[in-house]
């Protein structure tokens, strides 16, 4: 049901984009210029707002999740990355977390067998699909920079040629296009096929999957199947980037659908779970060194509390203490 709601919502967005792109020049201006501008502005402003909001809350305690041996006695080998005690260790830990999804790589499958025996098996598909998804998305975004630059710089050309090294079809097939759509499809199927994951899923979990699938699909359609006026697209993109927007008459409605869906994704981003992109860097269980015993961590809102002092304790028990031969402060 939740998946269907999300699916219908994305279908509606596709229809809106397509109609917008098919209507007159005012409408094309709205969908080709106003929408991406405002979406990008919303994305930047509200992501900053979100990050500042997180940053405005202090980290009162040093609470790294220690996933390896601590640094103690010199002859015990400590785990410098999984249980970092230096800034360098934290940087590596975070880099592994962000770049190769270290924690997700640990994923296991817990199974209860006949006779009540538990077994733990490898479960790397989610990690692989996650990596494929994020990296192909990043590469595709990077490739798109060619539309915004007068001369296509060498790094983009290199990525393009690597991405299409299989030399299939004309225009050449990009591997990341396949990987993105494949990974999104896997993530969706996983979400509905695994009963536990289905049970926890919200509309907000299906919606971005459908949306990104639709963005990818419209892109693929334009590149491989329908004809798109690339020169016109480049004119539009260059106009956007130079704040001198122009809307060529020659670009088809599919393009506006693509741009509109992407605009929706950008505008939706700061208000959704997709903020994990920024949040992962700020996670206190990962970005702190395990040095709380070595160096005092300060809690900015630490305040005095009521305690039961030794004096009060001795007053309660003085006679019993004396009888038991315990020293007392006051006779």
């Amino acid at each position: 049901m939740k998946a269907i709601v999300s699916f219908v919502a994305v279908l509606l967005l596709v229809a809106i984009g397509y109609m917008g792109g098919s209507a007159g020049s005012t409408s094309r201006f709205l969908f080709g210029v106003v929408a991406p501008y405002s979406a990008f502005a919303i994305f930047v402003v509200f992501m900053i707002v979100r990050i500042l909001k997180w940053a405005s809350s202090p980290v009162p305690f040093r609470i790294p999740t220690t996933a390896g041996q601590q640094k103690t006695l010199p002859w015990i080998k400590d785990s410098k990355i999984e249980n970092p005690s230096s800034v360098f260790g934290v940087v590596i830990r975070m880099a592994l977390e962000v770049l190769v999804f270290r924690s997700l790589f640990r994923n296991l499958k817990t199974q209860l067998h006949e006779g009540g025996r538990l077994a733990y098996g490898e479960a790397k598909w989610l990690w692989m699909a996650g990596l494929a998804f994020h990296y192909s998305f990043a590469i595709i975004l990077f490739r798109h920079l060619r539309f915004f630059l007068e001369k296509v710089p060498y790094p983009i050309q290199l990525v393009e040629s690597l991405d299409s090294f299989l030399q299939i079809g004309a225009p050449l097939l990009y591997l990341t296009d396949v990987a993105l759509l494949g990974a999104v499809t896997y993530l969706f199927i996983r979400r509905v096929a695994l009963p536990q994951v289905k049970y926890i899923s919200l509309i907000a979990d299906y919606f971005p999957l459908f949306l990104i699938f639709a963005i990818g699909a419209t892109g693929v359609l334009m590149r491989y199947f329908t004809k798109t006026d690339i020169v016109g697209v480049k004119t539009l993109a260059m106009g956007l980037i130079s704040f001198n927007p122009a809307v060529p008459e020659t670009i088809g409605a599919m393009f506006y659908t693509h741009v509109f869906l992407l605009s929706v994704l950008f505008a939706y981003f700061p208000f959704s779970k997709l903020v994990h992109m920024g949040g992962v860097f700020m996670s206190p269980t990962r970005n702190m060194a395990n040095t709380s015993r070595e160096k005092r961590h300060i809690n900015p809102w630490n305040y005095p509390v009521h305690v039961h002092t030794y004096e009060e304790y001795e007053n309660d028990f003085r006679d019993k203490m004396k009888e038991a031969g315990l020293p007392v402060e006051k006779e």
Binding site: R50, K53, W54, A55, S56, S57, P58, V59, P60, I63, S103, L104, N107, L108, K109, T110, L126, G130, L194, Q196, V197, I200, S201, L202, D205, K273, V275, H276, G279, V280, M282, S283, P284, T285, W301
Partner: peptide, 24 residues
């Protein structure tokens, strides 16, 4: 507590419900 604990504020926002924690 949202104001006092970054952990809490962050953990309210960034979960993607991938389910990796479920059977752990």
């Amino acid at each position: 507590r949202l104001k006092k604990y970054r952990s809490f504020r962050l953990f309210m926002d960034i979960c993607v419900r991938c389910g990796a924690c479920a059977d752990k």
